[in-house]
Design a protein around this nucleic acid. Structure first.
Lengths: 182, 182
DNA sequence: TCGAAGTGTTGTAAATACTGAACGCTATCG
DNA sequence: CGATAGCGTTCAGTATTTACAACACTTCGA
């Protein structure tokens, strides 16, 4: 996320000049200028001061909710999904026209032997999914599960996890994760 | 909000030492120490680096939600989903044991004639889904779409929307919405 | 009991962010 | 036209933050 760009768009949306905002925030106009141009990375304390002049919380600032454009495309035919496959696993993403999506919604195919890799995955957020066809092994932390068609899961992505298909039929998984990293 | 205290409690909850976090984050341990003692106000870029070693987003950091690390149920068999059906439409929710889920992940069955109602739905957030079986009609705003198996959608829930099955076979939809209202 | 490896803290020097005072520009008004 | 007030940018100097290297302390095992 581009801090400078974000600040500038918020400031303009509020109809404030750099000097006006600076005055309200108790910093100098040059500070605002340099932050917006990304020629500095402001300290937490000064960004707080700047936001207090709007006013806006840090959470609001970093959650890019306001100021989102409207995507045009709503429905995606089966062949219009973006292919973000990684290795043996086929992953297709719904919502390619959506600029800043909140959900990564995927249609995944794990052929026999497919695996997300030896290294366990760890990232922020939450993920969930349901197995539509076949069988699939899910490892979360120290636990190993075998999913059958119709089974589902939900866990925090910060737990180390891994998907594998050690069986002899392809598995089709439909999953959702937030925040969307794609 | 006390940045140092917040960082320290998060770090300890994750079982990381200052040095270990510093290594993952690509900063020095003294940086972590001084941030935690509030003897400096870190720059956005360095706080980002630090959080990436956890990993955690800025939004999560500044939203003062309590960190709950409680291991809950991860896998749900097909018959363990919560039934939140509404009228003719069968809706089953994944992740019933999850305390405060971010995603509402549903397995929905629309029998022939099923409908979300005459009144268009409008609420906060975003929603997405993929049709697994059958055919389904989706109305968003002034547009009407017919989904076939394999087709998907993604739109902002603030647009008025409605799902209908005017066909003679049942439709199976797997959907995700955020924030989760169930 | 000693050494090795771990913890968090701290001093100094280098890197970076911030202030204050310019600058060039545009628009408005007499 | 000239004055004035607004805008965002830039530069030199100052203030703050960061890296590096040490420090004191604790834990663990030989």
């Amino acid at each position: 996320m581009d801090v400078g760009e974000r600040l500038q768009s918020i400031r303009k949306l509020k109809g404030l000049s750099q000097r006006e905002l600076a005055k309200r925030a108790g910093v100098t106009n040059s500070t605002i200028s340099m932050i917006e141009k990304n020629s500095v990375s402001p300290s937490i304390s000064s960004l707080r001061k700047v936001l207090s002049g709007i006013p806006m919380s840090m959470v609001e600032f970093f959650s890019e909710e306001i100021l989102q454009e409207n995507p045009t495309q709503i429905v995606y035919k089966a062949n219009e999904l973006i292919d973000i496959s990684d290795g043996a696993v086929t992953m297709k993403l719904v919502g390619k026209a959506h600029p800043s999506r909140a959900i990564a919604f995927l249609n995944e195919i794990y052929p026999p032997g497919a695996d997300t890799g030896d290294e366990m995955l760890t990232h922020e957020g939450e993920e969930t999914g349901i197995l539509v066809e076949g069988r699939l092994e899910l490892i979360v932390g120290l636990e190993t599960f075998v999913l059958e068609a119709g089974d589902s899961y939900y866990f925090e992505s910060s737990k180390p996890h891994r998907f594998r298909n050690p069986f002899d039929v392809a598995a089709r998984l439909i999953s959702a994760a937030t925040p969307a990293n794609f």
